[in-house]
Design a protein around this nucleic acid. Structure first.
Length: 851
RNA sequence: GCCGGGAUGGCGGAAUUGGCAGACGCGCUGGACUUAGGAUCCAGUGCCGUAAAAGGCGUGCAGGUUCAAGUCCUGUUCCCGGCACCA
């Protein structure tokens, strides 16, 4: 690592103190030297972070989301992995058998883009990036079990994607359908609806998505829609925020499908979905999405209408583009045709409107202006009749009752009608109760090279035929030219394309589409448990051990994956359960979503020029400081504003700690390992008390709230106390404290910091004479007796205002405390001559109320 | 527009159950050490006020409940994230 050596030299010279004898070189904290030393040692022992296959210890599976190997880690990764690593180390120290793996989500478009721009084959580019990022992770000291590393773009992994696909196909959960798909002209590929951001490609945010019709493979995630929804209630370890987002994404809605008919010789059906079939007599128009098939037909015969519809489509696209579809200025056009209300035979006008979305429900609605605000707004704008048919009318709309026309049906109470109207519809056969979901089937076909080949074959004789399991994997060919033109590059590879039919042995074509990379990440965490299995994706027993009944103990990642990745993973888990591979129904018991790393209030981005590179931070401050700062600057669930001066502060703290231990470690002294005397001087006792209070605070904040920032702050306080103490700090000429206590304080302090700054902690542990490995040294315990204060300050309020404090010994009774407060001279000016209404003591504070 | 989260000193943040607002870090000010300090150590640092005190004000804004509110309630503004006019 020549680059790092250079920085070591640089930083050493920057802090150089030529020929100063008063401070030995040993006392200066040199993170690069320390980190290099431990880096080398840890390199030599691959079993260090390995999970035990058979263990009497309780298991703990801690997982961070695997990265896409884009080339280098960014600060968001560092933060994510610093959180996970701190937790893994904490659990190791608490005696758990910890599984803490890492891998690479290594299929995907950027590799193809790199192939085009840099002329590097995707595989080579990807593997090079992986090597670089893996080195960065090791340099940062993250404790992963690399023997379980998975790389999704390699055949030993993607073979099982194909295997799963065949299972899905056999169960009818994978199917082909022709459908309009989102087409990104830049990627020259199809995007899932979920991958469209504001009408634009999620990767090319300024490229509007076009619509094309293609034959696609879909996975029937909707078969699991109800279960995916229901089980959200069984995930108390997930942030409420994420559960709500998923609930909204699934979007279950109970209502009625009603068939209107187009008035005219064709009498075509117009199905509408409504949750308020009880208002159907108030329907005064039917509204179609601009892309509706009936819209298309009517427009085909009417050039004027065609023009207007095209404009509506353009408006809708524009609104989607700006992400403002929810706020679209409503426009519509009257087709001049009518639809027949099946309930009363009434003819109502058929409109086409820009706010009706083709991809929700049936793409058509009945418009009931008196009982729906949006319909009301539209009707007012275009002068469509508003007819109230039930009580009450639309909430908050300005009294539409006034505009009820002569044709009003007598209003009934809301809720009276749905049952009878629905029953009537079902009896007459023009409507039925329906549950719709917003969730759509998962389109996984990609017209890309760098992905898992879909293991299907097209034969002129036998049609669509699955590849035989024994012939897996279908290997992705190498040396493929990537072009930007549409269609999959695999079409251009005859050796791949041309094959034989598994059924008849005749000539056949392979499927040239590859799979969405969300397939890879939907089940990767099971593979970690048994990463080298060649006969199955994983062994059920082994996965069963690590997943238990509830899944991964703790999953940590960015909130941006709250919906897609996490809902696909949940679906895949349920599917694998139904296959009999696993017992758990959910993949993740506890989920943690960390905040973003920002700089100057803005997301880090190349265009803003505010990107902070981890390598640079490591070079300047060391890995420990970089990791620790990312935990200190904010609680982990909040956004973190990266401040250079902040990480300098952390480095200062680590230096302070290092110097203290360098000066106060005396492991060869006979008194060092003796037991701590029970009788201590008040000064020594104060240090001991602070230590035990610190252990309590760090443990509580780590365990309960994950507020690593306050954990670290607590250890800072302890170090400050040590420095300012009269008996050990700089002020003390020689330590006037029992060496055994001095040893105890330092050892515990180092243990408390081990999850956050592993390099320095190991170095100091060694300096303190630690023999066993720090990694699995037991987490410190505090003694509540030793943590107890000897005197307690009780604040005293008079009429709600703080007026001073009294000092009491622990154990003094409530009455005495009240009396002491009332009698105290300090408060006489506030209470003398006034009537004391009451005195409150709550255990923390005395409150005197006077009149 | 809907859903979710947030707003606390000059800055990042702390305050875990309604009980001392501002822990810890940064920055700033002063001092010590020093040829030097951008190293290190010590002290101070919410705002107004004062020679110093006393005193007053203070958690986006306006109200409310309470002996007591950053924390609970009602209303409201702004910022961030997500989204779906979802019928």
């Amino acid at each position: 690592m020549p680059q790092e050596e250079r920085t070591i030299v640089k930083s050493a010279s920057a802090a150089e103190e030529p020929n100063r004898e008063d401070r030995g070189r040993d006392e200066r904290y040199n993170p690069h030297q320390i980190e290099e030393k431990w880096f080398k040692r840890w390199q030599q022992d691959s079993s260090l972070y390995a999970a035990e296959p058979h263990s009497s210890k309780p298991k703990y599976y801690v997982l961070e989301m695997l990265p896409y190997p884009s080339g280098a880690l960014h600060m968001g990764h560092v933060r994510n992995y610093a959180i996970g690593d701190a937790l893994a180390r904490y659990m190791w120290m608490n005696g758990y058998n910890v599984l803490h793996p890492m891998g690479w989500d290594s299929f995907g478009l950027p590799a193809e883009n790199a192939a085009i721009s840099a002329k590097v084959p995707p595989r080579e580019w990807t593997l090079r990036n992986i090597a670089n990022m893996k080195a960065q992770m090791k340099r940062l000291g993250f404790g992963y079990d690399w023997s379980r590393e998975i790389t999704t773009c390699l055949p030993d992994y993607y073979k099982w994607n194909q295997w799963f696909f065949l299972k899905l196909y056999r169960r009818g959960l994978a199917y082909r359908k022709k459908s309009k798909v989102n087409w990104c002209p830049k990627c020259a590929t199809v995007l899932a609806n979920e991958q469209v951001v504001g009408g634009c490609c999620w990767r090319h945010e300024d490229t509007p998505v076009e619509q094309r019709e293609l034959e696609q493979w879909f996975l029937r995630i909707t078969n699991y829609a109800d279960e995916l929804l229901r089980d959200l209630d069984r995930l108390p370890g997930w942030p409420e925020k994420v559960r709500i987002m998923q609930r909204n994404w699934i979007g279950r809605s109970e209502g009625t499908l009603v068939d209107f008919r187009l008035d005219g010789p064709s009498g075509e059906k117009i199905s509408v979905f409504t949750t308020r079939v009880d208002t159907i007599l108030g329907a005064t128009s039917v509204q179609l999405a601009p892309q509706h098939t009936i819209t298309e037909k009517l427009a085909a015969a009417d050039p004027e209408l065609r023009k207007k519809v095209d404009q509506l489509i353009a408006e809708q696209a524009k609104a989607k583009e700006t992400g403002d579809i929810g706020n679209i200025e409503k426009h519509g056009v009257n087709t001049g045709h009518f639809a027949i209300n099946p309930y009363n035979g009434e003819k109502v006008p058929v409109w086409v409107a820009n706010y009706i979305l083709m991809d929700y429900g049936t793409g058509a609605i009945m418009s009931v202006p008196a009982h729906d605000e949006r319909d009301f707004e539209f009707a007012k704008k275009y002068g469509i009749e508003i007819r109230q048919v039930i009580e009450p009318s639309v909430a908050r709309a300005p009294s539409p009752a006034k505009e009820v026309s002569d044709k009003s049906v007598r209003p009934t109470q809301s809720g009276e009608m749905p049952f009878t109207t629905l029953a009537f519809a079902e009896q007459k056969g023009f409507g039925k109760a329906t549950v719709t979901f917003r969730l759509k089937d998962w389109g996984i076909s990609r017209q890309r090279y760098w992905g898992t080949p879909i293991p299907m074959v097209y034969c002129d004789e036998d049609g669509v035929v699955p590849v035989a399991e024994k012939d897996l994997p279908v290997i992705l060919p190498e040396n493929v030219e990537i072009t930007l033109t549409g269609g999959s590059p695999l079409v251009q590879v005859p050796e791949f394309l041309n094959t034989t039919c598994p059924k008849c042995g005749g000539l056949a074509r392979r499927e040239t589409d590859t799979m969405d990379t969300f397939v890879d990440s939907s089940w990767y965490f099971y593979r970690y448990t048994d990463a080298h299995n060649e006969r199955a994706p994983f062994d059920s027993k082994i996965a069963g051990y690590w997943f238990g009944e509830k899944g991964i103990d703790q999953y940590i990642g960015g909130v941006e994956h709250a919906i897609l990745h996490l809902i696909y993973s949940r679906f895949w888990t349920k599917f694998m359960r139904d296959l009999g591979l696993i017992k758990n129904s959910e993949p993740v018991e506890r989920l943690f979503t960390q905040g973003m790393v920002i700089k100057g209030g803005a997301k880090m981005s190349k265009s803003l020029g505010n990107v902070v590179a981890p390598d640079e931070m490591i070079a300047r401050f060391g890995a420990d400081a970089a990791r620790m700062y990312s935990l200190f600057a904010a609680p982990p669930d909040r956004d973190l504003d990266w401040q250079e001066s902040g990480i300098e502060g952390i480095q200062r703290f680590l230096s302070r700690l290092y110097r203290f231990v360098a000066k106060n470690a005396h492991p060869n002294d006979a008194a060092w390992n003796k037991s701590i005397p029970t009788e201590l001087s008040p000064e020594a006792r104060a240090i001991q008390r602070k230590l035990h209070q610190t252990i309590k605070r760090v443990t509580d904040d780590f365990q309960g709230r994950w507020h690593f920032n306050t954990c670290i702050a607590a250890t800072m306080e302890l170090v400050n106390e040590l420095y300012s103490s009269e008996i050990v700090g700089e002020r003390a000429s020689s330590p006037a404290i029992p060496l055994s206590l001095l040893a105890d304080v330092q050892r515990n302090l180092v243990l408390l910091l081990a999850p956050f700054a592993p390099f320095l902690a190991h170095e100091l542990w060694e300096m303190l004479g630690g023999k066993s490995s720090l990694l699995k040294a037991p987490w410190p315990k505090y003694d509540p007796e030793l943590a107890k204060e000897e005197e307690i300050e009780i604040p005293v309020q008079v009429n709600g205002k703080l007026r001073g404090k009294i000092v009491i010994a622990p154990g003094v009774g409530e009455e005495e405390i009240k009396q002491r407060a009332l009698a105290d001279e300090k408060f006489q000016s506030y209470i003398a001559g006034k009537q004391i209404v009451k005195v409150i003591f709550t255990g923390k504070l005395v409150s005197i109320v006077v009149r």
